[in-house]
Design a protein around this nucleic acid. Sequence first.
DNA 1: ATAATAACCAACTAAATCGATAGGAATTAG
DNA 2: CTAATTCCTATCGATTTAGTTGGTTATTAT
Lengths: 150, 150
Amino acid sequence: MKLSTKGRYGLRAMFDLAQHYGSGPIPLKSVAERQDISEHYLEQLISGLKKAGLVQSVRGAQGGYSLARKPGEITVSDVLRVLEGPMGPVDCVLEQDAVKCSRANDCISRIVWEKLRDSMIKTMDSITLQDMCEEAEKLKKKSENYMYYI
Amino acid sequence: MKLSTKGRYGLRAMFDLAQHYGSGPIPLKSVAERQDISEHYLEQLISGLKKAGLVQSVRGAQGGYSLARKPGEITVSDVLRVLEGPMGPVDCVLEQDAVKCSRANDCISRIVWEKLRDSMIKTMDSITLQDMCEEAEKLKKKSENYMYYI
DNA sequence: ATAATAACCAACTAAATCGATAGGAATTAG
DNA sequence: CTAATTCCTATCGATTTAGTTGGTTATTAT
């Protein structure tokens, strides 16, 4: 019941782009360095995010990636859906393309998994990249205050 | 972000035992047949559940397994914790033995994962095996009504 | 006693997935 | 032109998954 590095790295990368939103295209190399992720691997992840329309790219020198929408209009679930596939703790309750099994009609576990899926989606839907940026601001101010008193 | 068969099969098996609660020890063979799970594989799963004190066993002929507590006193999270390990979508926010990473102090993703973890736990904590048995009763009555009108 | 039942135990394995790495082609700014 | 950067495909070692195999031990019914 774990996320893979795709989801984890991918969200970190998107958060990074959100923090640089409005500053033109950001080269993946710099994202990879700041977030300490293999650049080549990140490339694969962002390729999916581009296909899904969450980021846009500019090729060539001075190129890079940027968010395709405002940070407030991209949720954590948007990102995770692309990188981890449709949400759901088991295949028979996936949001999309759920694989009905033979016992689907009277499977009580299924009801449990549906509830779990819904609570996960609700939580991930409620957090946008902007929310994350605001949290980062809070944290920054906190640490500045702290420094002040040393 | 998927459960393994351990969690899925294990919950089905525990639900099966819950439905037979009070009828003495249930041989694993019959659970495996009803739930369509390899008996030998189920053995491995239930061994963990026994160690965790969720089921008790009686050896020898007429032996088998039974719940160690009332179905209303065993939650889905109790079962999943044993079979899937401590809950948490990433290692740095596990309920127990969380692995702090180097960026833990100012990692915003971490806040997201904590929220996700909490919503998952809340949901799984709120469902007991008895709840599942009651759902099964509901479903049974529904289908009986349906049959009546054919 | 003996046969049957059923828990218990340990080792092995095929297949899939993960987390990259490797190497280059296409595009663009300066 | 050339340096930077996206884009694309293929490969790979390690780990995990989902079992299977082949037993041993304990208990009960006959």
